[in-house]
Design a protein around this nucleic acid. Structure first.
Lengths: 157, 157
DNA sequence: TGGGCCGGGTTGATACATCAACCTGAAAAC
DNA sequence: GTTTTCAGGTTGATGTATCAACCCGGCCCA
């Protein structure tokens, strides 16, 4: 043994971040589930669909927006369709069907978004305040950039 | 529609955080899976077990450390036991068995931790630098505190 | 001493994530 | 015009997360 007792400052800060991310995520998720009967996955798909004027878009577009694997999305859409939140509709190219938000799905997301947003503000935005929030977001952006660079290096090997 | 086009600064910053958390988490997870054949859940359990001198502790202690539900932990331990990473051993009180790190589990975690730590430094700690890291961690701690307070209010209703 | 209580653990069912294999039909190649 | 190719979608299998139901052995109490 040995290393695990010798956590430096930086590692403890990393753990603080992990703790925060875990708790914040599960809190928001549980709220969504209990109050709106939506999983985080449901919520994400529904939000993307509202970003289309016609409440309908190609599956590939949802996949691009969510950055999910195609199979994950397909399974998710099957479950959501069974629960009546969305429906698959054929488009001109029969290979690539569209997904449409049903009225039920529309009602669900319109109830969920304001509640979710309120929660995000209460637990995150308002806690940090404008300046610290900006700094925090900048830090996140920097980490994201580092991740992209790292991924590029990995691919070029 | 309407609200979804009117994202304020704060909401875009929230999304930046969500993006970062998602990418960073999945990157670390994939690395762990590919290089060490460990899931994030495996990793967490193994780390907690190394925090005991004897590589062994009561299930309840692991549950407390990870803050997992008892059933989640039980399922996880079953799978890890099947793969030979841990084993359940009876303690004096037959109701509450202990979990012990096997040699295979010990080897796995000793390979994984340094790699994981290196990755965390490369992608997070070193990207932010000492001052910004401290600010970031402080922000996380504040959000955590807000979460705790919020949860208390919820319970007292 | 022999019920019944009770806290912690396990099990089962369902939802979600991931990987690999497969299907499908439009468009390219011939 | 037939064959090939191929991007994108679906399906199945396995691992993981969560909830509810159940089990079990020590403890309390009569």
């Amino acid at each position: 043994m040995g290393w695990e007792q010798e956590l430096g400052e930086a590692d403890r800060m990393w753990r603080t971040y992990i703790e925060m991310a875990k708790h914040l995520g599960s809190h928001l998720q549980q709220h969504l589930q209990r109050e709106c009967d939506l999983s985080a996955a449901d919520f994400e798909v529904l939000v993307r669909l509202t970003e289309s004027e016609r409440r309908e878009m190609p599956v590939a577009e949802v996949a691009a927006a969510t950055q999910w694997e195609k199979s994950r999305l397909s399974h998710q859409l099957t479950r959501m369709a069974q629960r009546g939140l969305v429906e698959r509709v054929d488009s001109d190219d029969r290979r690539y069907p569209d997904v449409r938000l049903t009225d039920k799905g529309y009602a669900a997301i319109n109830k969920a978004v304001p509640e979710h947003t309120e929660m995000v503000h209460a637990l995150f935005v308002d806690v940090l305040g404008p300046e610290r929030l900006a700094g925090f977001a900048q830090a996140c952006a920097d980490v994201l950039r580092a991740l992209d660079e790292h991924r590029e290096r990995d691919c070029s090997l």
